[in-house]
């Protein structure tokens, strides 16, 4: 298998990583996700890594890339289900997943994304309102 399926759920994209990714697969996922975000205008990306037992700096960089590219296209990224042993190891390794939100499970991740989108909508309205004020 050379590709990981990406599921569209309303305004979100959901990816469940079920195996320890070899690099090619991880790079394909990065490309596919970014293409999908732009094509579907998704507002959020959920990546379920509960079955992933090792996140090294390569994998961490891929997750970071997905998040920063998605953000450019106005979508937030949440990584869900990180195993405690993986989290502990990442801290000691010194790898911070910049721009990546984390949540306990898919449900919590979904809630977090909804909140983020909601907030963004509010902020945009405020900005527009501010501009209106200025115009007056």
């Amino acid at each position: 298998m050379d590709r990981i399926p990406i599921l569209k759920m309303g305004p979100f994209l959901l990816v469940t990583i079920q195996v320890d990714l070899y690099d090619r697969l991880a790079l394909n996922l990065e490309n596919d996700l970014i293409t999908m975000v732009s094509k579907t205008e998704a507002r959020g990306v959920l990546i379920d890594i509960s079955a992933v037992s090792i996140v090294d700096s390569f994998m961490g960089r891929i997750l970071g890339n997905i998040a920063s590219m998605s953000r450019i296209m106005d979508a937030e990224t949440v990584v869900v289900g990180m195993q405690p042993a993986v989290a502990i190891t990442l801290v000691e390794l010194g790898l911070t997943l910049q721009g990546v939100y984390t949540a306990l499970d898919v449900e919590k991740g979904m809630e977090l994304l909804q909140k983020k989108i909601g907030l963004n909508l509010l902020n945009n309205e405020e900005e527009e309102a501010d501009e209106d004020d200025r115009n007056l």
């Binding site: 037992s53 390569f58 195993q83 190891t89 000691e92």
Partner: peptide, 13 residues
């Protein structure tokens, strides 16, 4: 498990 994860991650690097 935690020690395994640390060792394997180090080895991977």
């Amino acid at each position: 498990l935690v020690n395994q994860t640390k060792l394997i991650t180090a080895a991977s690097e």
